[in-house]
């Protein structure tokens, strides 16, 4: 089997794992934000802004993984 193809396959798996981690993180943030909004609907705007902010921070990490995988795949 071609070794570079194997490397690519592993890179894809790694990217998937990284994105899964990011997905879990964003899921937790989203869930907690929904809880917070349902507890205090008056603070909806602030909570939403912070939620997007936090989600974006985590998303950056997930993209790190994806970019590394892309680097391996496309060299």
């Amino acid at each position: 089997m071609d070794l570079s193809l194997l490397a690519k396959a592993i890179a894809v798996i790694g990217a998937g794992l990284g994105i899964a981690g990011g997905g879990i993180g964003i899921g937790i943030i989203g869930g907690r934000a929904m809880e917070a909004i349902s507890r205090q609907p008056s603070e909806k705007k602030d909570i939403r802004t912070n939620m997007i902010l936090m989600a974006a921070l985590i998303e950056g990490l997930a993209f790190f993984g994806a970019i590394v995988a892309l680097l391996v795949i496309f060299k």
Partner: peptide, 8 residues
């Protein structure tokens, strides 16, 4: 990360 996030 700011740069990477937007780019990615």
């Amino acid at each position: 990360v700011l740069a990477i996030r937007l780019f990615a």
